[in-house]
Structure formats: C-alpha cells, structure tokens
Design a protein around this nucleic acid. Structure first.
Lengths: 341, 341
DNA sequence: CCGGTTCGTCGAAGCGCTTCGACGAACCGG
DNA sequence: CCGGTTCGTCGAAGCGCTTCGACGAACCGG
C-alpha cells in the first residue's frame, strides 16, 4: 500500500524526504503557523497522503505541550439518567473531534486522585466534569491544579469556573406555567430519588425551586416529593402522593425511571390522563415521545457541544462566562390538557 | 505545598536532583527494570511523593513506544442496550486502570478512519471494539493495521482475533430449556428490532439460533419474531405475535426496550403472567429484578473485565484464545411457572 | 588472594515532534 | 537602482522520558 510494513510508524522525516523539504517545513504546512508557498504546500500534502502520515501523538504532545486530549469525567451513580449520559458522551466526542481533540474516559470513582494523575502527567489539556454537586470535592481541586475545566451542572460557588447546564429552574417554572395556564390549581412534583437531593445535585434542587417559585408567583398550590426508582417504588410513591393530595390535577415528573410507571399506574389509581390528571415531565425526549408525553427535554447533545466549545475557548485562554444556562422549551403532547373549567 | 507553582510540571530531573541520583536511576526505580538498592529506592520514592511527580505521558509514550492507553470504540445505534454499554464502559475503565492504562473514547461514527488515525498516531496501544457485526468492516482493518484488538461480540470469521461475549446461543437454549422443563410446548421469541438482525449483529442471531436449536432438540415448537422499539410498537408486535400464535405459553424476550411494555401489555391481551404465559428475558438484571422477571442477565462488567484482561495479554504478546464465551446463567423469578399439566 | 561475575548506578543517545533564530531570495518604494 | 521588508525555508535545539552500554564496587570461589 504505502510501501511500509503494517504497524511501522511513518515519521515527519519520511514525509520531508519524500517531499524534498525540511521536517520543519512539513510541520509548518500541517500547523499553518508560518507562511508556506502554495507549491510546497501541495507537494507536502501529497506526500502526507501517499505515505499515510499521522503525527505521533506522544511526540507532538511533548514538543508542543498540548496533548490534544480532553478528559470526560463520568458519574456512575444512582439517579443518573443513563441514556442522557450516552448521548452527551457522543456529542462530546464528536464535537471534540471537530476541534482535533480526543476524549479520555475517566470514571468518577477514581475521584480527586484521578484528576491529580491526569493533570500531573499532562495526559489531557482540560477536563469536562459531569454531574457536579453543589459542594463538589473536585471543584476546589480543579482550581488548585489550574487545570482548565468545564462543569456540567453547577456548584454552589461558580466563581472562576465555567458551568453549562440546562436551566432547570426555568424548566420547572415552564412546567408549572404550562399547567397553571391550562387551569390547574393543584400541582405536584414527583422528583428524583431522595439520595439525589441529599447529595446536593444541582439539577434536582433547581427544578424543585423553579416549580415552587412559579407556583407562588402564579398563585397555585404545589407540593413536591422525591420518588425512588423501580416500577414498584414508583407505584408506591405515586400512590402515597395522591393519597395525601387527592385533589392534584397537574403532575410534574422529573425522574427518568418513573416516567413509564407513572403513566401506567395513574389509570390503576383511577386517574385518566389527561382528563383527570395532566402529566408533564423533564426527561429525555426519546422517553417522552413514544408515550405522547408533554415534556421539557434535556438537550444532552446541546449541553455536550456547548461544554466542549467552552473548554476549547478556555484552552485558547479566551474568556468564558461562568455560567451558561441553556433555555429549556416545552413540547406539548397528549398527556396534558386543560381542566375544562 | 510542593514548592512549585500550580500547573508547573515536575520532571524526572527534579526528582533525580532531589534524591541525589541520576534520572535514569529514577526511571529504573519506577519501572523496576533493573535492580536498585533498597536504600536508593526508598530515597527516590520519597522524593517522588514529596514533589508529587507524575511521569509526563507524552514523553513516556515517545521513549517507550507505549501509550499506556487503550481505545474503547463504542457503538451508538438503534437496538443497543444503553445501560449495558454504560456498565460495560465503567468496568473497562476500572479494569484498565488496574493495569495502569487509560481509556480513550472513540465513537463508531468515526468509523475505519478513526482506527487509522488512532493507530497511525500511536495514541493507543490497542483497541476494544464493541458491538461487532458478523461482517464488520473494521475487522479486516484491524488485521491490516496490526493493531492489537479485542472484540465484543464476534464476527463470522474470528481467525487470529480475540472475541469476548456472553454465550448468547447458550442463553437462548437456557431460556427454552427452562420453559420446556416447566412443561411449555409452544414457545415464542420476541427479539431485537429487525434492523439489528439485518445488519448481522451477532448476539441477536445467536440467541435466535439457540432458541430454535433447543426447541428442536427438546421437541417443542418455537416461533421467532423481531420487535421494534417504543411502547406502542411493542404492543403492536406482541399483539400480532399472539394473534398468529394464540397457543403460545412461553415467551422469550430479547429486547431491552420491550421488557416493560411486554409485561404491562400481556394482561391487556387477556394473558396473566405467569398463569397463562411465562416470560423469560435476556436482558440487564437491573431491568428484570424490579419486575420480578425471570432472566438471563447480560454480565456487562464481566465482559468488560475479560475484554481488558485479554487485551493486556495481547499487548504483552501472550497467546489468547480466539473466542471467549461467558457462560450464561438463568435467574428464576416470578414471571415463569409450570403449565400445571 | 586474585580474576571473573554480579550489582548498582551513571551518562549519553534517541524517540518524533515543534519552535526559534537565521538567512537567502524576492519584492518594493523613494 | 539600492537598502529595507517580507516571504519561504532550513537546521538546531529542546520537550521529558527510556534504554543501552559502560564501569566502578562488592562479592565469590578455587
């Protein structure tokens, strides 16, 4: 094929020899950091192609002090929205590739030590931290290491950081506004598992705050309640909610695992959807769409793209906003309707 | 802290100076490739710790011709079992870290070009390919590039490769054996979406073959049918199946998205579970356990661990078996019972 | 007690890039 | 037409490691 045994590295010297120029010239053609004549450029690029040259990543990283790799620190705990994480990860990889960067996968269980290692060894140029908690132990470390980072979610103190997230507070408001606008006066939020609130996860708290604030503002009644995972648990928690508050006609669900069970359980509890109870959810759209569920989708791809874009800006030392909130939008489907008042 | 500005690299020369030895000696202490006196070793290790030294990944990769990174090529297409992928990815990262390797995330949509790039730039030492199809375009490429790889799933021709997977054929047999053993004589497989069979995905085909083979062997009747995703589609496909074969009493489900809808739809079609129809699934245990579903779990963690272990052996040029099949086991729960004959 | 091993350590070379300074050639304006 | 810029290219140095060969020191057996 290219006249080399498989597995043998083609080096910049090979390209230089083939094109009849100096290695540095090849480097400049590839990086565009110095002017190169059109003639030389085409010759070099042709040699690059015929030899199948790819710069050695280690050498490049060593010489340029840039790894061209970013770390994606994934959470893997109860209450995380698994499909969202996958879509997010894909968007991150794809976007990063567009900036000529690769993505190193780090799991949260390596914890702060993982960040230390990664920063110390110059394996990556920056990190994307998912599922950031209000008081996240990795955040001060990030500051201390001077490792450029972008957070998904946001901590209590975001000074000097860059955070991206859906505006969950606004999402909560949007759900309530939609229900109140349709005439509902008693609204309930069936939220994430209690453990998620307990460890201070931002999105759960912020949605709840949005629901409560909008209800106050619009003069409707709102109760909120965590909800555990698993069909049986959901049925139990939903039944308990409706037993305590039988006059609820608007239900906001923020719990991916609860969406299916909620819709199948409501009829069993004597509530038709949407005639007796309207349901809106904050959840991935794939989950909502097949059931005809009115929802505020979590724009995983958009978050991923934004996060990478912000990180790339940080890597170029451009200023970035501390907090980037993505505007939620509500998709109306069949599970929400007016009260008929 | 360590007497250095944050972000400044500590190099092996710093450690050598601090410990009063040559840089090469520090290297040998860390790699263990030459005998070092106990005294020197402790002194060097102490310096490593106080200075917070981490070898520069690029320099190390360049000098040793080993990146200490493996690539995980994820699929992201219809029909993939998302939670399984996540658990698998976690197991891969954790296991790889145990071998002092990191994991680079590559998405399948970069395709063969991604493998070329990764191999050419020596970014990784080997690759893990998920969701391998019977005729996978990446497989010949892997052979050509002489890039050590381990496949999850297995292609039609596994010569010279290393494949790991659950023994899906055996899993299919196990389901049928369980049902036949309980007295069921008419069994149906509700399988993956048609697209999954069409692109020749191994696990789907092999499960189907196992179901059919065991049914033949045991003299029971078996019909198989693909099943699309989404609650409505599942209801439709299941209803069609039961309309065509109303006397089916044993149902094998291999379709993560279908499990919930199947269980909720059967009663609506006048079939009580398990009195009228027994249901067993090949699916992640998290999905089955809360519903009391009898199932053959996909051991994602085990597959991940095995895959990494095999790849590490390949990287050390040790021989590895071409095919490693993990023995499935069936967990009996509430959705399967005897026919009462 | 002396010559050959083994042990422990060192210095130098080299991995494949990027980047810096240098330097002709071409260009241009007064 | 000539001196100063700009353009295009080159060679050398250096990034931070690993690994090789060398070489004293310590050890050991006959």
């Amino acid at each position: 094929m290219n006249g080399r045994a498989a597995g043998e590295q083609v080096t910049i010297a090979d390209v230089a020899r083939h094109a009849g120029v100096a290695a540095s010239t090849v480097s400049y053609v590839l990086s565009g950091k110095r002017a190169i004549s059109a003639d030389t450029r085409t010759r070099v690029l042709a040699s690059v192609r015929t030899l199948g040259y790819h710069p050695n990543a280690g050498a490049r990283a060593l010489a340029s002090r840039k790894a061209n790799v970013i770390a994606l620190v994934l959470p893997l705990r109860t209450g995380m929205q698994v499909p969202v994480v996958m879509r997010f990860a894909t968007a991150v990889v794809t976007t990063a590739r567009g900036y000529d960067h690769d993505v190193l996968l780090v799991t949260a269980d390596e914890g702060p030590a993982g960040l230390h290692r990664i920063a110390g060894s110059a394996l990556v140029d920056g990190v994307l931290l998912m599922d950031v908690e209000l008081e996240d132990s990795r955040v001060p470390l990030l500051r201390e290491l001077a490792l450029p980072g972008v957070l998904i979610g946001h901590p209590a103190d975001s000074t000097g950081l860059a955070c991206v997230d859906l505006d969950f507070r606004r999402a909560g408001e949007l759900c309530v506004e939609h229900l109140a606008g349709a005439g509902h006066r008693r609204i309930a939020l069936l939220g994430a598992p209690a453990a998620v609130y307990d460890r201070g996860t931002g999105f759960a708290h912020r949605t709840r705050r949005g629901v409560v604030a909008a209800a106050d503002r619009l003069g409707v009644e709102a109760v909120t309640r965590p909800c555990e995972e698993g069909p049986a648990a959901v049925r139990r928690d939903l039944a308990a909610l409706l037993a305590e508050h039988p006059d609820v006609t608007g239900l906001v669900v923020q719990n991916e695992a609860a969406v299916g069970p909620v819709l199948s359980t409501l009829p069993l509890l004597g509530r038709r959807v949407p005639q007796d109870v309207s349901v809106v959810a904050v959840c991935p759209d794939e989950l909502a769409e097949p059931s005809g569920l009115t929802c505020v989708p979590v724009p995983a791809e958009e978050v991923g793209r934004q996060a990478v874009t912000l990180l790339m800006r940080r890597l170029r030392d451009e200023p970035v906003p501390e907090v980037t909130l993505l505007e939620p939008r509500l998709t109306v489907r069949d599970t929400s309707a007016g009260t008929g008042r």
